[in-house]
Design a protein around this nucleic acid. Structure first.
Lengths: 345, 345
DNA sequence: GCGTTATGTGGTATCGCTACCAACCTATAG
DNA sequence: CTATAGGTTGGTAGCGATACCACATAACGC
């Protein structure tokens, strides 16, 4: 690592190769170099060849920071997810990443760790980086955050839920409808005492919507809503196992359990295997989100398929359209969900 | 979304709020605003209060693109992983993200999709964005890529393997040693016919190192190296199941199988459950990488624990140190690994 | 009292690129 | 042969911040 740039001294002397350098060596003006690189069709073949040769010779990489400042377009989109680690978000990020890359955009990813107060700070930081679009998973936002976004005047997509009043655009599914549909499905399969294990409810509209959907379905099924059948658990295999055991012990007549998180459901399933409880003979298990894993366990697990990749892809496509000049109209796309009936229910 | 910035016209008129605007309204010079924001201790209380008030009043967010151009520091680190979707990388990214955030750095993540030729393009793009540091998972690089990185003169960390000749710094473990240790472990447990299922070998030094480790251990154990006992499979539950079945059918005397990818191992385990093959009675199963899942399956699965989070954390810390001025010396950190003996072997 | 060091503040000159306008060249029509 | 249009090219003036220097003021020693 030679010649570290350490201050103004090095700026003029050993500074980076600039467009002017390339221009000088190619015998053209800097503007021609700029055009040859960003819109090759706008310069003549002769010029383009000269520029390309010089670019290759010096291994020139244009400075996009300068380009962004000048053009007021950063070509970076920001992403705030509750947890990079969760494979559900990973599937969405992957899809966004693919579409972004195909359109010459870069991704800046930030992790809110499910903390609402951090989201605001992260969005501020991304806006300071002048991202040209933003994807937020959360859809409960502080007032200040909404103001920030309004002032920033960039396209924003919410993906975690279908908010009643989206900030700008939303691509998601209804957590309420999904949980209601699955609970209803269990009821129609004949289960009478259906437990529900929810992920933490604090600062999490998705969790709350799912619980609301569960209760709505019970009412529709004409089943009593027993608060004792509802447990809150942080995500995790052990927590799912633990929740199931507690429900079975406190409510021996429980015949089905709906887990609002896939990992919880799998943890519970393994616990049943360990204890020799037949699934679905002793208790049926249903899950939320179609982890690949659920298709391979023994028994396979009934679940809700949420098209996470579609959410990512369509979000990115909407952003790209806007950046290409589409008129800024509120869009609210419901990607829907699907009940996948398998052996566990 | 009112007043979209559309070209030079809007630049002067309805343009963004700048430091000069804040300075004017606070009755100080732009430089004082700059200092009040980036190094509050360097200005007097009186000035800082005036600046803070104006900043709050206008909801001013400094333009970091301009800041980066001027200071030649982008405060963005680039990350190239084979797959965002894979939870192993996710754990590493998460750790990097945490350390980065604590140090005011942002993350730009790119997905190489295990394609070597894409890695070069992605690194170029990140360098054009003038990232101030780079983390690469892959450690087989094209000649042109190495040249690019040398010219860029920024800290680079490789995390996928411990290369003999790192570009700059490496934080990883030895895939060879790990695979060798696990194979040796199986041998010492008394298994005689040990199969090996590898992930794709093409363009993947990690996979090749693991296979090398497997063969080395067989030699040390005095067991014959039967190429028929080695299968290559793309990652996936079904692929793991399939590989196991094929090995058992072609080599009925096989008594253990080592999977170089965790998902493969779990797929195989489920297949055994389905077919009623006792694990480890009929066949023992060992895995690579300590997915949380492996601690909860029935039976639990013997595996190699690779400290993915540590890799991320230490990589980020090394980058941060360098950016804070640490001398650029080659560092090669071996985070090691650990054999986790469980019920499946 | 005056020189000397701290400390805080402002002015100026970039950073490397792109938008815009003006100038130029080559065709084609009249 | 001149006028007009179309297509390329170059010059200039920023984009919004920071580094560096210069300067003013306050604090200190002898």
């Amino acid at each position: 690592m030679a010649g570290k740039a350490n201050g103004r001294k090095a700026r003029n002397g050993g500074g980076e190769i600039t467009m002017s350098d390339i221009a000088r060596h190619a015998g053209v003006s800097p503007m021609t170099v700029s055009r040859a690189l960003s819109d090759p069709a706008s310069v003549s073949d002769k010029m383009r060849r000269k520029v390309d040769a010089a670019v290759r010779q010096f291994g020139y990489l244009p400075n996009r920071i300068a380009g962004s400042l000048s053009s007021k377009r950063s070509n970076v989109i920001g992403l705030v997810v509750p947890s990079i680690r969760n494979s559900l978000y990973a599937a969405m990020i992957h899809a966004i990443s693919d579409v972004a890359r195909a359109n010459g955009l870069h991704l800046m990813i930030a992790n809110s760790g499910h903390r609402l107060e951090d989201e605001e700070a992260l969005v501020s930081a991304l806006l300071a980086q002048r991202v040209c679009g933003l994807v937020l998973h959360n859809s409960t936002h502080s007032k200040r955050l909404r103001e920030l976004l309004a002032r920033a005047d960039i396209p924003v997509i919410e993906t975690g839920n279908l908010p009643a009043k989206p900030i700008d655009m939303a691509v998601s599914y209804s957590n309420f409808d999904a949980a209601r549909a699955m609970t209803g499905h269990l009821g129609r399969l004949g289960y009478k005492r259906i437990g529900f294990v929810t992920l933490p409810l604090r600062d999490n509209d998705r969790s709350r919507e799912r619980r609301r959907g569960y209760f709505a379905a019970l009412t529709e099924l004409g089943l009593p809503a027993d608060p004792g059948l509802v447990l809150e658990a942080p995500g995790g295999f052990a927590e799912g196992a633990d929740a199931l055991v507690r429900l079975v012990q406190t409510h021996p007549d429980i015949d089905a359990c709906f887990f609002a998180g896939d990992v919880l459901a799998v943890g519970a399933l393994f616990e049943c295997q360990r204890r020799g409880w037949a699934v679905p003979g002793r208790i049926a298990i249903a899950s939320f989100d179609d982890l690949d894993l659920l298709r391979h366990t023994v028994p396979t697990v009934t679940t809700l398929r949420i098209p996470r990749q579609d959410i990512g892809r369509r979000s990115a496509e909407l952003l790209v359209n806007r950046l290409h000049g589409a008129s800024p109209q509120k869009v609210r796309i419901d990607v829907g969900f699907e009940i996948v009936q398998r052996e566990s229910t």
